[in-house]
Amino acid sequence: MQVNFEIVQETAVSLTGVLNAIDEVTINAQEISLATHEQAVAIQQLVAAIEMIKTSD
Rank of each mutant, 00 (worst) to 15 (best):
Q45H: 04
T26F: 12
G17R: 01
L19Q: 07
S56T: 13
I27D: 14
N4W: 02
V8W: 01
N20P: 07
S14C: 03
I53C: 10
T11M: 09
G17W: 00
A49E: 11
I32K: 05
V18Q: 10
L46G: 13
I53M: 08
D57G: 15
E10M: 06
L34D: 08
A49H: 08
I22L: 05
S33I: 13
L19Y: 01
E38I: 11
Q2S: 13
S56I: 00
E51N: 07
E51A: 06
A40F: 00
K54G: 02
V8M: 03
T11D: 10
E24W: 03
L46I: 10
K54Q: 15
N4Y: 02
L34P: 05
D23H: 09
A12Y: 00
M52E: 09
E38Y: 01
I7M: 08
E31I: 10
A48W: 00
F5L: 11
A12E: 04
I50L: 10
V47S: 08
A29M: 12
I50A: 01
A35D: 05
L34M: 12
V3W: 04
E31W: 09
I27H: 09
N20M: 11
V18C: 06
A21H: 13
T36A: 12
A42P: 07
D23M: 00
E31L: 14
S33P: 03
T11R: 11
G17P: 01
T16H: 10
H37A: 15
E24Q: 04
A12R: 02
T55A: 12
V3Y: 06
I50G: 02
H37W: 09
A21V: 07
V3I: 06
S33T: 05
V47C: 00
I27Q: 14
E6V: 08
F5M: 09
A12C: 01
E51W: 02
S56G: 01
M52Y: 07
N20C: 06
N20R: 05
A49N: 06
N4E: 11
G17E: 01
A29E: 15
Q30M: 15
A21C: 09
V3C: 04
E51Q: 01
Q30V: 15
A40D: 11
A29L: 14
N4K: 00
A29W: 13
